[in-house]
Amino acid sequence: MALRVVVVDDSGFFRRRIVEILNADIGIEVVGTAVNGQEAIEVVKRLDPDVVTMDIEMPVMDGITAVRRIMAESPRPVLMFSTLTTEGAKATLDALDAGAMDFLPKRFSEMASDEDTAKILLRRRVRALARSRRPAITRAEPHDRSPAPDVPRPIPPRAPASGTPLHSLRAVLIGTSTGGPVALQEVLKVLPKTFPLPIVLIQHMPASFTPAFAERLNNLCQIEVREAAAGDVLKPGCALLAPGGVQLVLEGGGSQTRIRIEESPPGTIYKPSVDITFNSAVTALKSQVLAVILTGMGADGREGTRALKGLGAHVWAQDAASSVVYGMPAAVVDAGLADQILALKDVGPALVKGFC
Rank of each mutant, 00 (worst) to 15 (best):
K353M: 10
R170A: 08
Q185T: 15
L129Q: 06
T176K: 10
V315P: 09
G348C: 12
D232I: 01
P206H: 04
I341R: 07
A100F: 06
S280D: 09
S273Q: 00
V51S: 06
L234E: 00
T178R: 05
A2S: 15
L93Q: 09
R125P: 05
T283E: 12
P105F: 06
A95K: 10
S177Q: 06
T33E: 13
A299Q: 10
I269C: 07
V324P: 02
H314C: 10
K106Y: 07
Q318N: 08
F278M: 09
D232W: 01
T33H: 05
E227F: 02
K345D: 06
G301H: 01
L217V: 14
G88F: 02
G179I: 06
I26S: 15
R131L: 14
C238K: 07
A239K: 06
G32V: 04
H314D: 04
T277P: 05
M71N: 10
L342H: 11
D339R: 12
D50H: 15
D346E: 13
L84H: 08
F108Y: 11
Q185V: 12
D300V: 08
V126P: 09
V333F: 03
D339I: 11
A95C: 12
A2I: 07
L188V: 12
C238Q: 08
R46F: 00
G245T: 00
R76T: 01
P272R: 00
V7F: 05
V35Q: 13
D25M: 11
S162Q: 05
D144N: 12
T257W: 00
P147E: 03
G252N: 03
A242T: 02
E262R: 14
M328W: 03
R17V: 10
R16S: 15
Q247N: 01
S11W: 02
D102R: 12
V19T: 15
Y270F: 14
F103Q: 07
S146H: 11
F195L: 11
V126F: 08
R302Y: 00
V35M: 11
A230N: 09
R127H: 10
R127T: 05
E251F: 11
I155K: 13
G99S: 05
V332D: 04
F355A: 14
Q38E: 09
V7W: 02
P156A: 04
H204K: 09
V246T: 14
Q38K: 14
